[in-house]
Design a protein around this nucleic acid. Structure first.
Lengths: 144, 144
DNA sequence: CTCAGTGCAAAGGATTTGCATGCCG
DNA sequence: CGGCATGCAAATCCTTTGCACTGAG
């Protein structure tokens, strides 16, 4: 956790910004969640922080490469810690309620996937930053 | 193409809707594109169709299972023909300009991926509808 | 005739921004 | 002090909706 704070401080400093309390709260909240969070969820957890600050700080954190935005099926942005600050994982996205959950893939499949995607990218002149693999379907509570 | 029109007519009829000219235009436009299109792009191609009709018809087509929405990195919705009307494919998403391009994966990898994802889904009580695999990075023109 | 489809303009709603104030360095 | 950070409220902008009109069956 302290490690995380140090990384955060460093990356923010690089963008000429400070690691304020609000930002630390956001980072800590995201780092302890097992899934990406929406703004409303963040607001509920962190009463006292106004929407605009949440949006603004998440944007700053995103710029600094500490946080990333996750697309879902509803129209709410979700946020999680940046790839390199967490274990590499994927998302289960519910098409009914929009809920997003994390999951991981067996290492060998992940590896061959990576190799293959790299060559596809190279072949098409695309500079690969990372890949995104999502399961789309119905979460347990929406299966009725 | 006639096959496509027949499918469209049938699926729309099931939702109690007609396969009108506007809708046919949208379907044809999407079916001839090698990537998902944004509303502005659709409006440019199909001058004369007002925004509200485009949005409304795309919603109807989505309901009927003919068209699906694609998430990107910018905040514009993109649309493509439904999975089962096209070859299964994936997307290269540019983080700079938001551009989305289609690409496909070797069959064997696709198969083992599918198998694996099915078992992950089963294990977590998730009802898998389909998967989504995207390459995220910089497209050729944004690599500078 | 009926009811889906269309177009225009106005409304919605998540997200962003202007501006004045507070605060760390 | 200077510039980042914060909060409130107002503005943005993609998208959706209300309503009146047209047209297919």
């Amino acid at each position: 956790m302290e490690e995380l704070d140090r990384t955060a401080t460093a990356r923010l400093r690089q963008s000429g910004q400070r690691y304020t309390d609000s930002r630390a709260q956001l980072v800590h909240l995201l780092s302890t969640s097992d899934r990406p969070l929406t703004i409303p969820e963040i607001l509920n957890e962190r009463t006292g922080m106004p929407q605009s600050s949440v949006y603004r700080n998440l944007a700053v954190l995103e710029d600094a490469g500490l946080v990333q935005r996750v697309a879902s099926s509803d129209d709410w942005a979700r946020f999680e810690l940046a790839e390199d600050l967490t274990e590499h994982h994927h998302h289960q996205i519910c098409t009914k309620c929009g809920e997003v959950r994390d999951f991981t893939l067996p290492h060998h499949l992940e590896t061959s996937l990576d190799d293959c995607l790299s060559s596809v990218a190279t072949a098409t002149g695309f500079t690969l930053q990372h890949h995104r693999l999502d399961l789309v379907g119905l979460c347990e509570s929406c299966t009725s």
